[in-house]
Write a protein that binds this DNA or RNA. Structure first.
Lengths: 238, 238
DNA sequence: TCAAATAACTTATATTTACAAGTAAAATAT
DNA sequence: ATATTTTACTTGTAAATATAAGTTATTTGA
C-alpha cells in the first residue's frame, strides 16, 4: 500500500472548510476565520489559503467581502441536481433512496443519441443503467445513465442500491466529474415515465439531458433525467 | 471625466481572451497561447495570467490540461438562461427580441412572495415589469421581474424594448449580477401563460424562480420566468 | 454629545521564485 | 524501421513579499 496522500494543501483546506460548513460548525452568516488566521491554523501561506477560499466561493459555499471577511451562505442544496456533485451526495444521503430499474449492462450506443459521440465512444459500446430515486418515499427522479465502456473492471456487477454513481466512480476508479453541460425541458410524461414517477399521463415533467466531463481523457458520462416537480423544485446556484 | 480605468490586469486579460473566443479568433479545440507566452504578450506575471485563465475555465470558455495547454471549448450558449449574464446578452443580441407587456411600475411587494424578503425590501416597495422574449419570432420566455426600489433614478421611464435589463443596470447604475439561486419546475401552462407563449392550456412549461445577488449590498433582483421548451431547450454549463 | 479622522483590521491585486508533474516530440539505441 | 529514452515544453502547487483598497471600531476634536 504505497498510496501516498498527495492531496494539494489548498484542496485539503477546501475539504475541511466545506465539511465544517455542511456540518453546521459554521452557520449561515458566520464569518470564516480570516485568511491570516487560517494561515496560522493550518500552517499555509496566504496564496494557498486564498485558493481554497476562492474555490469555496466559486462553489457557492461562501461569499467574500473585501475588508470584511468570508461569509458562509446557506446553500439551498435540497435537490442539488444542477450542481456537479450528483444527487445523492448533494442531499447528504439522508432522505434519498435509490432503486435500480435496470442493472448496469453493456450495450451498443443508441442510434441518434442525445449528444454527438466520438468514434472511439461508438466502437466501445456503453454501460447502461436505469435508476429511480425516491425522496421520503416519493419517486422524484427517473434516471437513465450511459457510461463509456472503457477500462472499468467489474462495474456491471457493482452494488448501486442507495449509492451515488459518482461516489463509486470516485472511490473505485478515481474518476472525478469536472463539469459538463445540460439541456432542460418541460415535457408531458409518457406512459413509462408517468408510471415510474406516479403521475398521470401527460403531466408536466422536467427533463434534463446531461453530458458530464471527467478527469479521464475522453470519458464522458451521459444522463437523461426525468423529474417529478410537483412537490419539489430543482434548486441550483449560479 | 476622471474615470481612471482601474480594471485589474487579470480581468483585462480575461476580457480580451473571452472576446477573442466569442469572436472566433480562437476556435473550438484551439490551444490558447501558453501561460508564459501570454506573460510576454501582455507583460504580466504568470500568477496574474493564471488567474485570468482560471476564471475563463470556471466560466466554461476553456479547459486546462496539465502538460498540454488551455483548450477552447464550444460553449453551447444557445439560450444561456442558466448563466449569470442574462438571456439577451447570452444570445449575442441576434435573434432575441423583447416585448414589454407591463412597463416598469412601482408597486408594493406581493404577499407571499416567492422568496423571503428583508424588512428594508418590504418597506421600499418594488419595481415590477413583465416582458415577453421572442426567438425568431416565437415567444419563448415570459418574464416577470421584481427589483428593489432603492436609488435607481428614472428606472421606470427607461426604454427596455430589445434591451437587456442587466445591460441597463450595468451601464446606467453600475450594478452587476454576482450570482444567485434558482428553483426550476415543470408546470402546466395557465391561461395567461399559454396565451403569451402561444401554447395550449396545460401544456408543459418550464418555470424558473430566480433570486439574483448584486454588487450593491442588499439589492436583489427577482425573476419568475416561464419558458416554452417545445422547440428550444434551456442550455447550461456546470 | 456628535461628527470626523485615524487605526487596525479585512480581502484584492501583483511580483518573484522554485519545483513538481503531465505531454509530446525529438533524439537515441536496438 | 521501431521501440525507448531524453528533452523541452506545458500546467500545477506553493512560498515569500509588497502594496492597494474596503470595512469597522476606536480615538480624537469640536
Amino acid at each position: 500500500m504505497d498510496t501516498v496522500k498527495k492531496i494539494p494543501q489548498y484542496k485539503r483546506l477546501y475539504g475541511i472548510l466545506r465539511k465544517h460548513i455542511i456540518e453546521g460548525i459554521y452557520k449561515e452568516g458566520d464569518l470564516l476565520p480570516s485568511e491570516n488566521e487560517l494561515c496560522r491554523l493550518y500552517d499555509m501561506t496566504r496564496p494557498t489559503v486564498r485558493q481554497s477560499l476562492s474555490t469555496l466561493a466559486a462553489d457557492g459555499y461562501i461569499r467574500k467581502h473585501q475588508g470584511k471577511g468570508s461569509i458562509v451562505l446557506i446553500l439551498p442544496r435540497e435537490i442539488g441536481i444542477l450542481s456537479v456533485s450528483g444527487t445523492t451526495s448533494a442531499l447528504g444521503d439522508r432522505n434519498l433512496k435509490t432503486k435500480i430499474i435496470v442493472k448496469p449492462v453493456l450495450i451498443p450506443w443508441i442510434k441518434d443519441f442525445m449528444f454527438p459521440l466520438s468514434e472511439i465512444e461508438k466502437e466501445s459500446g456503453c454501460i447502461y443503467m436505469e435508476r429511480l430515486r425516491l425522496l421520503d418515499g416519493n419517486p422524484i427522479f427517473y434516471d437513465i445513465s450511459y457510461l463509456d465502456n472503457i477500462n472499468l473492471p467489474r462495474i456491471t456487477s457493482r452494488q448501486f442500491e442507495n449509492k451515488s454513481l459518482f461516489q463509486i466512480l470516485r472511490d473505485h476508479y478515481l474518476i472525478e466529474i469536472r463539469g459538463g453541460e445540460q439541456r432542460i425541458k418541460a415535457i408531458p410524461a409518457s406512459v413509462r415515465i408517468s408510471s415510474f414517477l406516479q403521475l398521470k399521463k401527460n403531466q408536466p415533467v422536467l427533463h434534463l439531458e446531461r453530458k458530464m466531463e471527467t478527469n479521464v481523457n475522453g470519458l464522458f458520462i451521459y444522463s437523461s433525467i426525468y423529474c417529478n416537480t410537483e412537490k419539489y423544485s430543482i434548486f441550483g446556484r449560479f
